[in-house]
Write a protein that binds this DNA or RNA. Structure first.
Lengths: 112, 112
DNA sequence: TCTATTTATCGTATATAGCCGATAAACGAT
DNA sequence: ATCGTTTATCGGCTATATACGATAAATAGA
C-alpha cells in the first residue's frame, strides 16, 4: 500500500482540463441533457427526467456532474430546480476542444 | 435478471455518437497520446510509453481505445508499431463536437 | 537457432461510474 | 400543522474503466 494506483497526475494541466471536458460529455445522458437545455433555453429538473429513459435520481447525478464542470447552472424556484446552460463555460470548453482539434488536424498523418 | 441495468440505449444516435467522442477524450492519457502524436507527426509505441507515467500495457490499452474510435491508426513495422493520427476521423469528431457546441452557445441561458 | 527487443493481450485487482429505490429536505398549498 | 410535490442525497449493487505484471507473439539480429 502507499502506492498510488490511479494516476490523475503526471499530465499537463491543459491536457487534464481537456480530458475533464471529455468526461463531462462522455455519457449520452449528459449530452442529451445539454441538448435538451439548449432546445428549451431553460428547463425544470422534472422535464429532463421525463425526457430521459432514466430514474430521477440518476438524472440528478448527471446534472450534478454537468454542474461540477460548470456547464450548467441551477437555481431553486420553490420546490423545483431550474437548469440552464452556462454559455461562458460552454465557450471555454469549445475553445479547449478546438485547440486540441486544430493541433491534431494541422499536424496529421504523414508516413503512416 | 433479464433487466438491463446499463442503458446505452434510448438516446438519439447523434447524441450517442457525440458521447463516444467524449469517452475517447475522457482520460488525460489519451489526450496526451493524441497531442504527442500531433507533435511528432508519427510515433512508435515505445516513445509514447516513455512519454507517459504509465506502464506499457496500460498505454497499449489507451492506444486501443483511441484506435477503436478511429482517431489513430497503427501499422506494424518489424517488431514495432507506428501510430499516427487519422485526420479524417479527427475532423469528423470536431464536426460533431462543434455542432453540439454551436447549438449550446447559440441558445444559451436566458431566464436562469 | 538462439537471444534480445518490442508490443499486444491476458489475468487480476481496484477504483470509478452508473443505476435504482428509498429517504430526506425544502417548499407550496390547504 | 399536515399533505403533496419536487429534487437532492444516501445506500447498495453492478458494470466499466484503469492499472499493473506476466506472458505471448512477432521480428530483428547474431
Amino acid at each position: 500500500m502507499g502506492v498510488t494506483r490511479t494516476r490523475k497526475t503526471g499530465f499537463a494541466t491543459e491536457v487534464a482540463r481537456t480530458a475533464r471536458w471529455g468526461r463531462a460529455l462522455a455519457h449520452p445522458a449528459r449530452v442529451a441533457i445539454l441538448t435538451l437545455l439548449a432546445e428549451r433555453r431553460t428547463c425544470v429538473c422534472g422535464e429532463i427526467v421525463d425526457d430521459l429513459p432514466l430514474a430521477q435520481s440518476t438524472v440528478s447525478q448527471h446534472l450534478r456532474v454537468l454542474g461540477e464542470e460548470g456547464l450548467i447552472r441551477g437555481q431553486v424556484e420553490g420546490t423545483r430546480s431550474c437548469y440552464c446552460i452556462d454559455a461562458d463555460r460552454v465557450r471555454a470548453m469549445m475553445t479547449d476542444l478546438n485547440r486540441l482539434g486544430a493541433s491534431l488536424e494541422r499536424k496529421a498523418a504523414r508516413g503512416c
